[in-house]
């Protein structure tokens, strides 16, 4: 009972923004930020405890290479110092490098080599061949559209133009699905606010909106 009521109150506090910006929304927003900060700190400290304290202090691996990572991690905080901020560039560079190196290792195969393999255009089933041709054309033309190294002139112009149409199909699909995704969030919340005890909170919210309107009109 109390759970549903609390949930519906916080949902309505946030949704009150759809009527207009107001104190309830801002309280909800501040609360969300505060809670998110606390969660981040709690889980972050847990990770550091498990990764640093347990191996180094509990397991007494005093000369673990983990200490270098800890030193690098602490170096990041020099960004708050005006004279030592440049030190923070070292761990950030290492972190960015590792991230990009790992991503590139996977991307070459998954995003380039494997994607270049398009099925045969000459198949027993004519529809499969035609579909493969459409796959090929849409892939090449949309890629051509992003070739900003060359101006879209001459032979590249119609190809890039066709690329726009290819991408319109792809963006149309995404737009339809984007709406579906976003309304899904609201749909999952609505039962809480239209069934008792959430309904009572909703009635109070509606009364507040009516009163606010009457005050504004006066």
């Amino acid at each position: 009972m109390i759970d549903a009521l609390v949930m519906s109150i916080v949902i309505l506090m946030a949704w009150s923004f759809l009527y207009r910006e107001n104190i309830f929304y801002r309280i909800g927003e501040a609360l969300l930020v505060g809670l998110a900060l606390a969660i981040s700190v709690k889980v972050g400290l847990d990770v550091l405890f498990n990764r640093i304290y347990i191996p180094i202090v509990v397991k007494q691996q005093w000369l673990s290479p983990t200490l270098i990572a800890v030193a690098l991690g602490l170096m990041m905080y020099t960004r708050f110092s005006k004279s030592l901020w440049w030190v923070s560039r070292w761990p950030i560079a290492l972190l960015s490098g590792a991230g990009l190196g790992v991503a590139m290792k996977g991307a070459v195969m998954a995003q380039i080599v494997r994607q270049l393999d398009i099925g045969s255009l000459f198949t027993k089933d004519i529809f499969t061949g035609v579909n493969n041709l459409i796959l090929l054309v849409t892939a090449i033309t949309s890629l051509a559209y992003f070739l900003y190294t060359f101006e879209h002139k001459g032979a590249l112009a119609p190809v890039a133009k066709l690329g726009i149409y290819s991408m319109m199909i792809c963006f149309g699909t995404t737009l339809g699905l984007f709406l579906m995704s976003n309304i899904g969030f609201a749909i999952s919340l609505i039962p809480t606010v239209v069934r008792p005890p959430g309904l009572y909170a909703s009635i109070v919210a509606i009364i507040l909106i009516i009163v606010d309107n009457l005050i504004k009109k006066e």
Binding site: T138, A139, S142, L143, I169, C170
Partner: peptide, 12 residues
């Protein structure tokens, strides 16, 4: 078909 093709171009 067309959606996957266009996305494939974007991925590449």
């Amino acid at each position: 078909v067309p959606n996957t093709g266009a996305y494939r171009g974007i991925l590449i």
